[in-house]
C-alpha cells in the first residue's frame, strides 16, 4: 500500500471547468451563426470557415512541434481563433487568405510570444489585420450578396466573383445615409432583417440574433461576464447617438449596434481572456475604450468598420488596465500600504 498513493497539493477537488471545455463551448456557440451564413451566402462560407479552422489548428500543431513544446491543438484555442478569423473576413475571398492569416495569427501572433496566454493581440484579429493590409482589395470587396433561396448550391452554379456587393457600413460611409436607406430599406425593416442576418457582410456581421444568443449562453455558463459587452455596446450606442447624426444627438444607436461586427466583437472578440483585462473595472474601461475607438474609426476614420482595429488597439492596454485597477485587497495592513 505504501508509496502507491498519489500526492499532490491542495486543493484536491477542482471545478469541472477546463480550458478545453471553455474553448470548444465558444466554438460551438459560433456554429449557429455559421450555419445561418451558409444558408444566406452559400456553401462557400462553410469552406472558408473550414479552411480557416483547419489551417489554424495545423499551424498551431506545427509551430508547437517546431518550438519543442507540447502540442495542445486539442484544447480548442486554435480552432476558436480559426473560427473567429473566418467570421471577420469576407466570405468571398480565396482559400489562400485564411491560410496566410493563420500563420500570422497563430505563429507570429501567439507562439513566438510564448504560446497561449502570452499573446498580446487577439490572434484572429491580428490575422485579419494582416490580411487586410496584404489583400486590401479582396478584403474590402469580396462580399457575397445574401440570397433568399437555394443559396447553398448557387456557389457551384455561379462562381464567386460574379456576385459581390458592399456592406451596409461601407455604403453608409461612402455613399451616405440616403443611399443606405435606398439599398437596405427603412429603419423599421432594417432592424429586423439585420438582427436576423439578411445582409451582406462577413459571417460575424450577419445574424445579430444568433450572436447575441450565443453570447448570452456564454454569460449563463459564466464564461464571460456582462462587463465588456455592455460597456462596449453601450459606448458605441451612446457615442453614435451623440455624434453619429447630422447634428448632435440624432444618431441611430440601434443601427450602429446591429450593423457591422459590433455584436461579434462585443461578445466574442473583446472578451477573449488572454487579451482583455481581468479586473471588472478594468473590463468596463476596456469595453468603453473599444466602443469609443470603434465609433471614432467608423465616423472619422479610413475604414467603414472600426471594431477590429479598436480591439487590437485596446489589447495592449489590458495589461496596463489590470495594473491600474487591481482588485481591492481584503484590508490593508495596520498603518496602511507600504
Amino acid at each position: 500500500m505504501a508509496g502507491l498513493l498519489n500526492v499532490s497539493v491542495s486543493p484536491h477537488v477542482r471545478s469541472s471547468e477546463s480550458v478545453e471545455k471553455i474553448m470548444w463551448t465558444v466554438v460551438a456557440c459560433l456554429v449557429p451563426p455559421l450555419l445561418l451564413s451558409v444558408f444566406v451566402f452559400g456553401i462557400q462560407v462553410l469552406l472558408i470557415a473550414g479552411v480557416s479552422v483547419i489551417s489554424c489548428m495545423a499551424v498551431e500543431a506545427i509551430s508547437q512541434k517546431a518550438l519543442g513544446r507540447p502540442v495542445t491543438v486539442k484544447d480548442g484555442s486554435a480552432a476558436l481563433t480559426g473560427m473567429l478569423m473566418a467570421f471577420v473576413i469576407p466570405p468571398g475571398v480565396s482559400f489562400l487568405l485564411p491560410i496566410l492569416g493563420a500563420v500570422m495569427a497563430i505563429y507570429i501572433g501567439k507562439h513566438l510570444l510564448g504560446g497561449i496566454g502570452y499573446n498580446i493581440f487577439n490572434p484572429a484579429l491580428l490575422g485579419r489585420a494582416f490580411l487586410l493590409a496584404t489583400f486590401p482589395v479582396a478584403m474590402t470587396t469580396a462580399w457575397l450578396v445574401p440570397l433568399t433561396d437555394g443559396a447553398i448550391f448557387s456557389y457551384f452554379n455561379s462562381g464567386v466573383d460574379a456576385v459581390t456587393t458592399a456592406t451596409p457600413l461601407a455604403v453608409m460611409k461612402e455613399q451616405g445615409m440616403d443611399a443606405f436607406r435606398q439599398q437596405f430599406g427603412a429603419p423599421s425593416e432594417i432592424y429586423a432583417s439585420f438582427f436576423l442576418g439578411w445582409r451582406p457582410g462577413c459571417i460575424g456581421e450577419t445574424s445579430g440574433l444568433l450572436i447575441v444568443l450565443g453570447g448570452l449562453y456564454l454569460m449563463w455558463r459564466r464564461y464571460i461576464t456582462w462587463h465588456i459587452p455592455v460597456s462596449l455596446l453601450g459606448t458605441i450606442g451612446l457615442l453614435t447617438w451623440v455624434f453619429g447624426g447630422e447634428t448632435l444627438f440624432t444618431g441611430d444607436p440601434l443601427l450602429a449596434i446591429l450593423t457591422g461586427g459590433a455584436l461579434l466583437g462585443a461578445f466574442y472578440m473583446a472578451t477573449d481572456y488572454v487579451t482583455s483585462p481581468s479586473s471588472k473595472t478594468g473590463q468596463m474601461v476596456y469595453g468603453a475604450g473599444i466602443g469609443a475607438l470603434t465609433v471614432l474609426i467608423r465616423l472619422k476614420g479610413g475604414y467603414p468598420e472600426g471594431i477590429c482595429y479598436a480591439i487590437l488597439l485596446m489589447n495592449p492596454l489590458s495589461t496596463v488596465l489590470d495594473n491600474w485597477f487591481k482588485p481591492k485587497r481584503f484590508a490593508p495592513p495596520i498603518g496602511g500600504e507600504k
Binding site: 491580428l126 487586410l132 493590409a133 474609426i297 476614420g301 479610413g302 482595429y309 479598436a310 487590437l312 488597439l313
Partner: peptide
C-alpha cells in the same frame, strides 16, 4: 504587431 494595430488610425480625419 503594434504597427499593424496602429493601421486602424490610418485615414482618420
Amino acid at each position: 504587431q503594434f504597427a499593424m494595430a496602429f493601421l486602424g488610425f490610418s485615414g482618420l480625419q
